[in-house]
Computed example of a mutant assay.
Amino acid sequence: MEPVIREAKPEDKPFIEEISRLTWGGEDYLARVFDEWIEDGDFYVLELDGRVIGTAKLTLLPNKVGWMEGLRVHPDYRGRGFGRMLHNFIVQRGRELVEEGKIEALEFATYFLNRESIAMAKKDGFSVIAKFFNLGAKVADFQPEEPSPTEFEMEDLGLGIIPLGWKFVHRSGEALKWLREKGEAYETGGFKFIATKDGITFTPLSAGLGCIRAMLPAMAWVAREKRREEFDLMLTSGMKPVLPGLKRLGLFLWDETEEPNVLVFRKRP
């Protein structure tokens, strides 16, 4: 049978959970967001011979951005063009949303070693608009200190593109509202940071080595409360000069590199 791309259904969950277990050493988030994505819509699966072997999602973000995410292919079916098929489908779906006036551009983020996605993006006319460092940390390496829940305003958002987990939004009033709804904000020692609601990834709203040092115990506290043993920080590429200092604080890169390991792409369909 020919492969078919269709909207995901609740009964697809066991297939998605299997793909998730076999991706990123079992650390993939796909299974955790399955129900949310089903409700949100524009969540698609690639089915072959009655089996779901791939996924892709298009999410509407502030400033009329169509965010491409969740592109996965089961390991047993990689290298056969299914990833390209899903990518092309989502790009075409983006064109339809542009025509409907719902979005103005497509964007996505990927890890710097995801060479297949990067090659497809460049071939299709996507350009890199931002680079970030994603660094890991272990809760056990810090003495967790409880931060205070807080609010943040536009003046707290110093970057033009602000990460929340692996989604990135352009600084605007609409983005501020979205970040408040989707994230959790904390303050410690006068420094603020945003956390994903699962306590996995943190975005410092104050840059600098000293600021990060002051916030790490509070981030570790939040991660521990969410029953996490490890957590991540998403830092702007401007932090490259202090990368050695960040490592001395206990942060680490999953793959050794001196360059930013997260790339954000954009294209106007």
Rank of each mutant, 00 (worst) to 15 (best):
K9G: 08
E11V: 13
E11M: 11
F15E: 11
I16S: 09
E17S: 14
E17F: 13
I19T: 08
S20V: 11
T23D: 05
T23K: 13
T23A: 12
E27S: 14
Y29P: 06
L30D: 05
A31S: 14
F34A: 05
E36M: 10
F43P: 00
F43H: 03
Y44D: 01
L48C: 03
L48M: 09
D49K: 15
D49W: 14
G50D: 01
G50N: 03
R51S: 10
R51D: 05
R51T: 14
G54A: 08
G54F: 08
T55Q: 04
T55I: 03
T55L: 04
A56Y: 03
K57D: 13
L58Q: 03
T59V: 14
T59Q: 12
L61C: 02
P62S: 06
K64V: 06
G66L: 05
G66K: 03
M68Y: 06
G70H: 04
G70I: 05
G70V: 04
V73H: 10
D76W: 11
D76H: 14
Y77T: 03
Y77V: 02
R78Y: 06
G79H: 10
G79E: 05
G81Y: 06
G81E: 05
G83W: 04
R84K: 15
L86T: 00
H87L: 08
V91N: 02
Q92S: 11
R93K: 14
R93N: 00
R93V: 06
G94A: 01
G94V: 01
G94C: 02
R95S: 06
R95P: 00
E96Y: 02
L97S: 00
K102R: 13
I103T: 00
E104F: 00
A105N: 00
A105P: 00
L106M: 05
E107F: 05
A109K: 03
Y111P: 02
Y111D: 14
F112Q: 06
L113Y: 15
N114F: 11
S117K: 07
A119W: 11
A121H: 08
A121M: 06
K123L: 12
D124H: 10
D124W: 11
A130N: 11
A130S: 14
N134Q: 15
A137N: 07
K138W: 13
K138A: 13
V139C: 08
D141F: 12
F142Y: 15
F142K: 05
E145T: 11
E146S: 11
P147S: 10
T150H: 11
T150M: 09
